[in-house]
Simulated scan of single mutants.
Amino acid sequence: MSKLLYITANPKTEVKRSKGAQIGEVFLETFQQSRPDVEVERLHLYSMDIGRIDEDLLYARAKLSFMGYSFEQLSEAEQNQYSKMQTLLDQFINADYYVFVTPLWNFGTPAIMKDYMDNMFKFGETFTRTEEGTKGLLTNRKAVHIQTRGGIYAEGPMKEYEMGDHYLDKTLSFLGMEVMKPIIAEGLDHLPKQVPEIMAHAKQEAEKAAIEMANDTVTHN
């Protein structure tokens, strides 16, 4: 059975309080109408124990990668951190479709999303090296990013400061995925009177993107 990972990075737990979540729910509803055969798994990062690259994980990865250690030879703390990373990685690898929902904070993605994605880089499982260079191994998968922005970054003087969607796009592409055009709702703080119009447009774009993703039957098996 195919799987879609729906990954949100926002401390707000109620959909009605998060504009990004509202857009995301429209995407999911539309997608599931077309593809009831796809299992949806929700990951609310702020309610999860996301492993961060700390000293224990850094040494655990090095010891197992090129220092000749076995898992049993790691310290208990190193084993715990590595196992936590591997669990998240296995869950990620086993999906076919990915939906990321994030706000743009201080020009970038929420730190917890960066922590989460740091767990997805593992040589031999998500990327490798060839004579032509580095190659992503997560092929035959499709991803889309839903992002909300308080200001205007699609054009104008702030365009070069947008590093949240840019980060996810480059990261997922590096890992081998097909990344769809993002769904962006921007100006939500700067243009308060236009928020209903901005949200309506973003939801329409979410519906279109969901249909596009649903019509593309991908499988990595």
Rank of each mutant, 00 (worst) to 15 (best):
L88V: 09
E39T: 12
E76F: 08
L43N: 09
S47L: 12
V40R: 00
M48A: 10
A95S: 06
Y98L: 08
Q81D: 14
Q81W: 09
D96A: 05
Y59H: 06
E29W: 00
E41C: 10
D96L: 08
K84M: 10
Q81F: 02
Q91T: 11
E55D: 13
A77E: 14
T87I: 08
K84I: 05
E39W: 03
E76Y: 02
F27R: 00
F107M: 13
I53G: 08
E78Y: 02
I93H: 03
P36F: 04
D37K: 04
M67C: 11
V38I: 08
L104F: 10
Q73S: 03
Q91L: 15
L57E: 10
P103A: 05
G68E: 04
L43V: 07
Q91E: 09
D90A: 13
Y98D: 05
Q32V: 02
A77T: 12
F31A: 00
V99I: 08
E72L: 00
K84G: 14
D56N: 08
E39R: 05
S65Q: 14
Q86S: 08
W105T: 12
Y59A: 07
P103R: 01
E76A: 15
L58D: 12
Q81A: 13
L45P: 06
H44K: 07
R61M: 15
A62R: 09
E55I: 11
G51F: 14
Y98A: 05
L89M: 02
Q79G: 04
D37E: 08
P36V: 06
E41R: 10
D49P: 05
E39N: 07
M67E: 13
F27C: 02
S70Q: 07
L104I: 09
Y82E: 06
Y98Q: 02
D54L: 07
Y69D: 04
D96I: 05
S75K: 00
A60N: 01
E29V: 01
Q86T: 07
S83R: 13
I93R: 03
S65V: 10
Y82M: 10
F66V: 15
D37C: 03
Q79L: 08
Y82Q: 03
D96V: 09
S65H: 14
M85C: 06
L104S: 13
Q81G: 08
V99S: 02
W105G: 07
S65N: 14
F92A: 04
V40F: 00
T30P: 01
V40D: 00
N80D: 15
E78N: 05
T30G: 01
V99R: 00
L104P: 07
Q33H: 12
Y46I: 04
A77H: 10
A95H: 11
Q33D: 14
Y59E: 13
M85D: 10
F71I: 06
V101K: 07
Q91M: 13
F100G: 03
I50W: 04
F71E: 12
V101G: 08
F100A: 06
S65I: 11
